[in-house]
Simulated assay, not measured.
Amino acid sequence: MPKLVRAAVLTNYLEVALRHGLDADRLLSQVGLSRPSLEDPENLIPVDAAVQLLEESAAAGGNPSFGLCLAESRQLAHLGAISLLLGHQPTLRDALQAMRHYRHLFNDTVAILLEETARMVIIRLEVVCEPPRPCRQSNELAIGALFRLCAALLGARWRPHSVHFSHQEPSDLQLHRRLFGCQLEFASEFNGIVCSGSDLNVINPHADPTMARLARRYLDSLAGSNRPSMLYEARKAIYLLLPMGRASIDQVAQTLGMHVRTLQRHLKAADTTFHELLNSVRRDLVIRYLETPGYPLGQIADMLGYSVPGSFTRWFNSQFGMSPAAWRDTSRTACKKAGADTCSGPDHATYRLPA
Score class of each variant (00 low, 15 high):
126 E>Q: 12
126 E>F: 10
127 V>H: 10
128 V>D: 07
128 V>S: 10
130 E>Y: 10
134 P>E: 03
135 C>K: 11
141 L>K: 05
141 L>Q: 06
143 I>R: 00
145 A>W: 11
145 A>C: 13
146 L>F: 11
146 L>I: 09
147 F>R: 03
148 R>W: 05
148 R>C: 10
149 L>C: 06
150 C>M: 14
151 A>D: 02
152 A>Y: 10
152 A>V: 10
157 R>Y: 10
158 W>E: 07
159 R>C: 05
160 P>V: 02
163 V>Q: 06
169 E>G: 01
169 E>A: 13
171 S>C: 13
172 D>I: 09
173 L>W: 04
173 L>I: 01
174 Q>F: 12
176 H>Y: 14
177 R>W: 08
178 R>W: 11
181 G>E: 04
181 G>R: 03
185 E>K: 15
186 F>I: 08
189 E>G: 15
190 F>G: 08
191 N>Y: 08
194 V>T: 08
195 C>A: 14
196 S>Y: 00
197 G>L: 08
198 S>V: 15
203 I>V: 15
204 N>Q: 05
206 H>K: 07
206 H>G: 05
215 A>T: 00
217 R>Q: 13
218 Y>W: 08
219 L>T: 06
221 S>Q: 10
221 S>T: 12
221 S>H: 12
222 L>D: 05
222 L>F: 04
222 L>S: 10
224 G>W: 07
226 N>P: 08
227 R>D: 13
228 P>Q: 08
229 S>R: 04
229 S>Q: 07
230 M>W: 14
231 L>F: 12
233 E>W: 06
233 E>D: 13
234 A>W: 03
239 Y>Q: 11
242 L>A: 09
242 L>N: 07
244 M>R: 14
245 G>T: 01
